[in-house]
């Protein structure tokens, strides 16, 4: 492996050795390589530059380039670990790792907290939750009176915001999700268990000499 994947590295900036990525994540080397097949397809859907842009991410999620989606944008920003405006393969694998069924539950809770703490203040504020709720209603073409939205927010904050300071801190979030485990469903992708079956072509494109499983 002296000149390890130099061609791949040129074509895919930020591409990392699958063996190293596997050692840092819950994925096996084969699974990392299968994820690379998925990455190749997403990152070449608009511009074939080996990186996933926001537009390509949205296209992969919604299968069309429709209107901006607050939540897809937020996920994209969290995946864009290096804050470059694009997702490279290393970012992609490490971020998806949090969604692996075997990933530590604390990592999932931490990711979900950052997801909802949109302005990164260390708190999930009522105003942020209202903004997300309105975005959700808009996306699903559901109409609720502002009064009803406020009732939902009151109820939610009465339950989650234990010290009643109008914002949810990390400890309160931990407490809240442990009482409402269904909130963590979005943080686990069972698909990640079958990734090698979904993308079997990784076998033909393998960069490692022997695939350890």
């Amino acid at each position: 492996m002296g000149c390890f994947n130099s061609k791949v590295r040129k074509q895919f900036p930020g591409h990392e050795n699958p063996v190293i990525l596997a050692s840092q994540t819950a994925f096996s080397v084969s699974e990392v390589e299968a994820l690379f097949e998925l990455f190749k397809s997403i990152s070449s859907s608009v511009i074939d530059d080996g990186l996933i842009s926001k537009e390509e991410f949205q296209l992969a999620l919604f299968k069309n380039r429709k209107k901006e989606n607050l939540f897809a944008n937020r996920i994209f920003d969290l995946f864009d670990v290096k804050r470059k405006g694009v997702i490279d393969f290393g970012d992609f694998v490490r971020s998806l790792n949090v969604f692996h069924p075997n990933a530590p539950f604390e990592d999932k809770i931490e990711f979900s907290f950052r997801l909802y703490d949109m302005d990164s203040t260390g708190f999930i504020e009522r105003q942020e939750v209202k903004q997300m709720l309105i975005a959700l209603l808009c996306e699903s073409e559901m109409r609720l009176a502002d009064e009803t939205i406020e009732i939902i927010l009151d109820k939610t904050f009465l339950d989650a915001d234990v010290n009643q300071d109008g914002k949810i801190d990390k400890a309160e979030w931990l407490n809240f999700v442990s009482r409402n485990p269904s909130l963590m469903k979005i943080m686990t992708l069972t698909y990640l268990r079958d990734i090698t079956t979904t993308f079997p072509s990784f076998v033909f494109n393998s960069e490692v000499e022997e695939i350890a499983t």
Partner: peptide, 25 residues
């Protein structure tokens, strides 16, 4: 009808948070 779901339960139904769509070929 009374709304029984909390705000986060509603939010978690967003399509933008459903990453399983990434795996549909």
């Amino acid at each position: 009808r009374p709304v029984t779901m909390n705000a986060f339960e509603l939010i978690s139904h967003s399509q933008g948070l459903n990453l399983s769509n990434l795996f549909d070929k």
